[in-house]
């Protein structure tokens, strides 16, 4: 009987624990929803090309650490993979492995035009010593490895950085 009474009493206590967990979950859901966008940022990189006489430029937009070690590819402009080796530093870092750029390629960019690439980037990349670089190359003209190098910082958003090859400037903006 005593045992039975204990069990009877335990039932409502168990029910209130579930209610408490449910309430906690309800409180956590909005908190998680707020914290998730903070882990990634939507960033648009805009690379404006200089006016030059020549074919469309091949560009590799990629991330390195502060020592220039390749971390990953954001975009490759240029349709023919046989020319990718001219994007020299990116080619060395990525080993020209297809898995590094599959689904991340498009047309080359003509003289004077601006390439805009919008991606979600992890928040930790900003102020973490990472850089975004562009290697560029134009057929029958000189290759420009690390044409432009931009440190990824929160304060650096909106500030154009001049290139030394075919890129006139590269800037990034948060949404």
């Amino acid at each position: 009987m005593n045992q039975l009474m204990t069990n009877d009493n335990a039932q409502p206590r168990h029910g209130s624990a579930i209610r408490r967990l449910f309430l906690m979950a309800l409180l956590l859901v909005p908190a998680l929803a707020v914290s998730m966008p903070a882990s990634a940022r939507e960033v648009t990189f805009s690379a404006e090309l200089k006016p030059y006489y020549g074919d469309g430029a091949y560009l590799a937009l990629y991330v390195t650490d502060d020592k220039g070690q390749y971390q990953g590819t954001l975009w490759v402009a240029g349709g023919k993979s046989k020319y990718y080796r001219h994007l020299r530093q990116w080619a060395r870092g990525s080993n020209l492995s297809r898995s590094e750029y599959d689904g991340l390629t498009g047309a080359s960019v003509q003289s004077g035009r601006t390439l805009n690439v919008t991606v979600d980037l992890a928040d930790k990349l900003f102020d973490g010593g990472y850089q975004v670089r562009i290697d560029s190359a134009v057929e029958d003209l000189r290759d420009a490895p690390s044409d432009v190098v931009v440190p990824l910082t929160r304060d650096g958003a909106g500030t154009p950085v001049s290139g030394r090859g075919y890129v006139k400037s590269l800037r990034y903006d948060f949404k």
């Binding site: 991330v63 971390q71 954001l74 975009w75 898995s99 590094e100 599959d102 390629t105 805009n116 992890a122």
Partner: peptide, 23 residues
């Protein structure tokens, strides 16, 4: 170029979706 190439999820550690690209 997004309109001309099939969207393929990149096997890339930095991003998990194809970027939006325009010229």
């Amino acid at each position: 170029p997004q309109t001309s190439t099939p969207a393929q999820p990149p096997a890339n550690s930095l991003i998990n979706a194809r970027p939006k690209v325009s010229v």
